[in-house]
Design a protein around this nucleic acid. Structure first.
Lengths: 83, 83
DNA sequence: GGCTTTTATGATGCGTGGATCATGTTCCCT
DNA sequence: AGGGAACATGATCCACGCATCATAAAAGCC
């Protein structure tokens, strides 16, 4: 699974999908990441925007990699993924 | 070009590399992103941690995509990139 | 329908990010 | 070496993220 994020909404949505894909509750993710269930709820629904620190905490807890790549290349790569 | 980021240091470094790859100065990037040269300097040197908002502003200005993907898959993909 | 678990929301307080201005350093170029 | 551009730093101020607690709403299950 793989998500592109260009807005806090995208990011919240991606986090939620990844969490669910792992069968975790917000509380379990909170414990694993050292954050709070309430904080995660607000990030997933993009009621709050998160800092890099918390984002990295979440990535670590979800075993996610954060990749920065050129947008031009992404469209090509995403296209390839269809086949 | 493509960078993996797991820490604010990684992120600052990646931003700087991407900016230089585009031949932009901090001031130019500041204008393009609606941020301030001072803020960008502090993010690149990870003296400040940035929020999701500013990260997305920078990505947009640098034409970068932010991708969330599974770590297990990344190592395989990175390996493939060598060939 | 009731009970439990999960998620959302609302308030408070502290810490810190980013805007803004001023100024100090470092780098380049000739 | 001197001058200008680029980058770093330091201070102040306001806004907002996150911790924390309490509680409400939703979803799941019997």
């Amino acid at each position: 699974m793989q998500y592109f994020a260009r807005t806090p909404q995208d990011m919240g949505h991606a986090i939620r999908q990844m969490r669910k894909a792992r069968g975790m509750t917000q509380r379990q993710l909170a414990v694993r990441s050292g954050l709070w269930q309430e904080t995660i709820s607000k990030i997933e629904t993009s009621q709050s925007r998160a800092t890099l620190d918390t984002l990295f905490d979440l990535c670590a807890a979800l075993d996610l990699e954060l990749v920065l790549t050129e947008r031009s290349k992404v469209s090509a790569a995403a296209f390839e993924d269809l086949f």
